[in-house]
Design a protein around this nucleic acid. Structure first.
Length: 137
DNA sequence: GCCAACGTTGGC
DNA sequence: GCCAACGTTGGC
């Protein structure tokens, strides 16, 4: 499956993730997001979204270890993620909103959800956007 | 920085 | 088990 995960770049950015390569993805404190994380499989790819400050999808990471109890709160779960790459051009929230093809993305529908599944079709559209440029910063 | 939306908590 | 109060997220 494919996913989209959010992070505030002030707290954890795609650049931080690039530096360390592989790291734990923890701190998710929402049951719906947790349930999605439990479904993540090794090898699944995730879009990395910067919330608040940049509001753009900026890169791709890969699940390298499936869900295990969050070390800080065992009611929730964490996974391990490996940095794959930055997108050629970030895909802004504005651009996603303007695309009718993506209006069903939970990112639009449910702005507070921090982990969400992405369909193959949505993934493909977003990959196209990331190649096109002029997506704004 | 504000505040709407929404998830969670806790008193009843 | 309901729902008001509270806390947090994240777009604007």
């Amino acid at each position: 499956m494919k996913w989209l995960i959010k992070s505030e770049p002030n707290e954890w950015s795609i650049d931080d993730h690039k530096k360390v390569g592989e790291t734990i993805w923890d701190g998710v404190r929402n049951f719906q997001a947790r349930n999605y994380m439990r479904e993540m499989k090794k090898g699944d790819l995730c879009l990395f979204y910067h919330s608040r400050v940049q509001k753009s999808i900026v890169g791709i990471v890969e699940v390298i270890k499936e869900s295990f109890p969050d070390p800080k709160d065992s009611k929730f779960v964490a996974v391990d993620m490996k940095y794959i790459k930055h997108l050629k051009c970030p895909v802004s929230l504005e651009k996603i909103k303007n695309s009718q093809l993506l209006e069903d993305l939970p990112l639009i529908r449910q702005s507070r959800l921090s982990v969400m599944p992405i369909t193959e079709e949505q993934w493909k559209i977003l990959m196209d956007f990331s190649e096109q440029g002029n997506s704004g910063k």
